[in-house]
Amino acid sequence: MSNIEIFHLANLKLPIEKNRLLMLFVGINLMFTGIDVALAHSINQFIPVYEWIPVFYFPFGALSCIYIAFRNKPGRWSSYLHTILMLIGVLVGIVGTAFHANAVLNPGGHLTWSWIVFGSPILAPLAFSGISLLGLYAMTEEVESQPGKLEIKGIGIFKAPISRDRHFLWLVGLGFAASTLTSVIDHAQYGYTFYKLIAIIFGLFASSVVISLCVSKNWSKGDETVYFWTMMAAVVVGVLGFGFHLSADLAGTGAFSLERILAFAPVLAPLLFCDLGLLGLLVVSQTSRKN
């Protein structure tokens, strides 16, 4: 059993320790992101052929994360393999962003707003990069009393400019920023009605809270409280968004149409906020093993 403490505000008992929970979190995220990508790319039958790349990658990345999460002591080779897979994941995200950007920014050689708004979401593939980086950092352990010195057991020690926890926090902050920017662009398709502004306003607020903490050296108790409740609110906003998207897809008929689920409001997209909220709580939690 593991006792999780989030600042001075919450205490939870979990059956799994923090690092393993993080790794499991990454694996589940990779799985859902991969399924979401597969559905999105199926709209035009995976044409061109490189739309298959993330679909082929994600099962390997997800399985590796889940395997590592449940192994007591991952061996050297599994550590190597996991590291390589996570690095591939980072690459898949960057290359995917380049493909999306090329499709949107250069359909005929010049920029058009309609393609930025209605075309492939440029920042979406970066989700793979972010999640894979998480998976990479979750594999590491910080050498005691040497913030920034990260060890991957069986592979070696690496020097990073910031501490391990700060890495995680930056990923959360940038995740919120990317999700918010995607939300701003996507919601431009049909105009900014009130409930769409919820996602945008909250996303902007959450991004700035997290990033401001990333650059702060010292956090006050007030900062911690703001951060905590922002992450909790992220979960609520995500669930709300899921409800709104699902309602739009059901088109008032209550009937399920796969075509609308794929082409209209993406149901899994708002859950990114839930995801980031939970991750944000997890990365700042302190955990100790309880015998």
Binding site: A206, V209, G222, V226
Partner: peptide
Amino acid sequence: ERQIPKTLIIGIAVTVFAIILIYLFTK
């Protein structure tokens, strides 16, 4: 004396600024 957390101030300020920018962009 209770101080307003700086994250709250930054969060609100950035959000308001960005909303104004988005509004101006649409106009």
